[in-house]
Design a protein around this nucleic acid. Sequence first.
DNA 1: TAGATTGTTAATCGATTAACAATC
DNA 2: TAGATTGTTAATCGATTAACAATC
Lengths: 216, 216
Amino acid sequence: MKSYFKAPKVSGAVIKRLPMYYRFLFSLYNNHVERISSRELSHMMGITSSQLRQDLSHFGEFGQQGYGYRVDELLKIISDILGITNHYTGVIIGAGNIGRAILTYPGFIQRGFMVMGIFDNDPKKIGQTARDLYIKPMDELPQFLQEEHIDIGIIVTPAKSAQIAADVLVENGVKGIWNFAPTDLKIADNVIVENMYLGDSLLELFYKIKERSESE
Amino acid sequence: MKSYFKAPKVSGAVIKRLPMYYRFLFSLYNNHVERISSRELSHMMGITSSQLRQDLSHFGEFGQQGYGYRVDELLKIISDILGITNHYTGVIIGAGNIGRAILTYPGFIQRGFMVMGIFDNDPKKIGQTARDLYIKPMDELPQFLQEEHIDIGIIVTPAKSAQIAADVLVENGVKGIWNFAPTDLKIADNVIVENMYLGDSLLELFYKIKERSESE
DNA sequence: TAGATTGTTAATCGATTAACAATC
DNA sequence: TAGATTGTTAATCGATTAACAATC
């Protein structure tokens, strides 16, 4: 079995499928499935078995001819590849509804992610609790980021405050930003930005609905 | 100018970029920019001008040699292509934090989308208000969907209730489902499903952070 | 062992980019 | 008009799929 700890050069298309592999393997594991073939797994996911095997081959050899893959083993490997086992930490910037919703998102624990703080600059919100955290004022953010060695900043502010928040996050050493604000952030390219543009997703749905109704 | 009302056969890669074109054009329009060339616009978006022109050419001819594109015209066209001008309606299933957050998402109005109702089956939530709506019980959902001719159901329930909600939505005529629950829905394929898997997006961010730190 | 299934190579398919004639 | 920029064709690049020898 080759090591999967070296950084291989992997295309964006493959990277986008890794979380899906994780999701399906996690579910199989929870259902006490011991082994699975590329044929079965790919069929569940709606892709070809060639693609599944090709994707995995970027990281190593994890299966066995004539047998398939051990679910627990492959889940562990995909988790390592994704960095789940690094136990990243984060803070949430913005204590509105989305901020609070994200704070309690159950998928985080499963993925080894821990939100350590939530910040806002609305005096009415500061000092309130959300989950088990006090909402802190923005001017305490820099110190908090450094002392707690926060990896990821989650931006759920209105669009106009997002860039300011991003700048503070980057200046104080976060490695990545998960951005829910509907705006393009300007960020030094040693920091990774992942955008969650709700509007874009909704418009894609619109387009497909329209396309479908036109083809009838 | 060719018509863009015929349903052309357009690849998923192109469809995914359409909302981005909308976003940038909307911003230019708000900043009172009158015209833009494919070179300038593509540069802003971080793609090639070839790709931009190639993408638009699937739908018609909207530019002018030696001039470029009129921003207002192109914005209108992209809006029509995406179906924004259809003024779709929706309901939210699940009145937790995410449900309430989505209800007040400012991007909806801009995109011609109107949330007409919000439903939950928690007796404590039913009857409360969210935005200007009373939270309704799930057993009123079928009638509501039919009477109001709802186009889109937004699922923000826990994973275990999502499939039940989806079934009710489909039985009562929605054309699309926007799913925030971390589960794969089984849906008749005349209904479009768009999944917002927060967990997948976060894991993609993890991967890129890990990859970046390994390449140093 | 025989059957099953992997990992990989080669072939195919599709998407992106380059280049340029057409033309405003 | 001359310069700029489109829409489109052709070339390139990359991703997906098919096929199969290797082997458990």
